[in-house]
Simulated assay, not measured.
Amino acid sequence: MTERKKVRFLSGEHECAAWHYPGTNNACLIMAGGTAVTKEPGTDLFAARFQDAGFHVLAFDHRRFGESGGRPRQVVRIGEQLADWRAAIAFAATLEGVDADRLAAWGFSLAGGHMFPVAEQNPRLAAAVAQTPLADGLAAARAAARHQRPMAMLRFTVRGLLDAAGALIGRSPLLVPLDGEPGTVALLTTPDSRDGDRALNSGNRHRDWQQAVAARAGLRITMYRPGRRASRVACPILVVACEQDQSVLFETGARAAERAPRGELVRLPGGHYAPFLAAHEQAVDAEVAFLRRHLLDQPLDRSLSRSGRRS
């Protein structure tokens, strides 16, 4: 049975909830899920495998989601989430048995996209893993539009604008489902987005997970292009991209891996959630091997890990 305990840390004025999985080596992996995906559905499957491989894991909820604080709920604010990552990394460094020079970050989908600015802005990270990352929100939105009907796109846009306007006067968020069939008002209607519940919530294990997000998230995510930061990432970064991904696109993740000075790319068959489904073993094997290589099997260049560049 997986051993873990609930912990909390401060990010600004908010408290973030997390699971700490104690490890048997002194390296720690900080993890979070994608858009509105909380720590249990978003990280449980991988966190247990990383712990089995000996790593400590800190898996957390971004503020405004899951068990973390912050209101209004279900609202994605990119800057806040990046601040939560900084706080989580700082907290992980204080965990008993963890070497502060052997930290890595892991995210998928939207959080996978976060890996590029997170790794750039946090030079204490020794490595990062971006799994099916949203590297270019604009490119992903254009591709996703092919799987949506014009009137539904218009209704979604109007709802997003109303939600954003309502936020200015303190109204509650207007929510949309994370996925839906073409013609419905949902964040994603791509064919592979429909695998989300099967991949993350098989058997309805996570009954408290609210699979909805404030409609304004669609507007913000479309303008988010974190892959452009890849060229400024100093640490090794592994991009795990799926060749038939219709939700965030294989090509944009692969280009980000190519631009990163120490980027590595793993190509997997399947759609956006394949690493949680048929390609799970391939994904875990590649990620564990990468983490062992960069966190355990070689001496760290401490001047690089602390300053973000070689002295």
Rank of each mutant, 00 (worst) to 15 (best):
Leu178Cys: 03
Ala53Cys: 10
Leu58Met: 08
Val75Cys: 14
Leu291His: 07
Gly183Glu: 00
Thr252Arg: 10
Gln148Lys: 01
Ala135His: 07
His14Trp: 14
Met31Phe: 03
Pro173Gln: 05
Thr222Tyr: 03
Arg8Ile: 01
Ala139His: 04
Arg63Ser: 14
Arg102Asn: 06
Ser307Met: 13
His20Met: 07
Ala93Leu: 08
Phe9Tyr: 10
Asp197Leu: 11
Arg73Ala: 11
Ile221Asn: 01
Ala286Thr: 04
Leu103Cys: 11
Pro41Lys: 04
Ala164Met: 12
Cys235Gly: 11
Pro191His: 03
Val37Ile: 14
Gly70Pro: 10
Pro269Trp: 00
Gly12Glu: 10
Pro261Ile: 09
Asp44Met: 12
Ala17Met: 06
Leu219Asn: 08
Gly23Phe: 03
Leu125Asp: 07
Val158Glu: 08
Val240Ile: 14
Met223Gly: 08
Ala257His: 04
Ala164Thr: 10
Trp209His: 11
Thr132Phe: 02
Glu251Val: 13
Leu249Asn: 06
Ala283Ile: 13
Ala53Met: 07
Cys16Pro: 01
Gln148Val: 01
His206Cys: 08
Gln74Val: 00
Met1Val: 09
Leu162Gln: 12
Ser311Val: 06
Asp245Gln: 05
Arg310Ser: 14
Lys6Pro: 12
His14Asn: 14
Ala165Gly: 09
His20Tyr: 02
Met223Asn: 12
Arg310Leu: 13
Arg207Met: 09
Thr43Pro: 00
Arg73Met: 03
Thr38Ile: 15
Gln51Pro: 09
Pro236Asn: 10
Ala256His: 04
His114Phe: 15
His114Ile: 02
Arg194Cys: 07
Gly42Ile: 05
Pro22Asp: 12
Phe108Cys: 12
Ile237Trp: 04
Phe91Met: 01
Pro261Glu: 09
Ala48Lys: 12
Val185Trp: 00
Thr94Leu: 09
Gln298Met: 08
Ile169Met: 08
Arg64Phe: 09
Arg149Met: 12
Ser231Leu: 14
Ala289Ile: 00
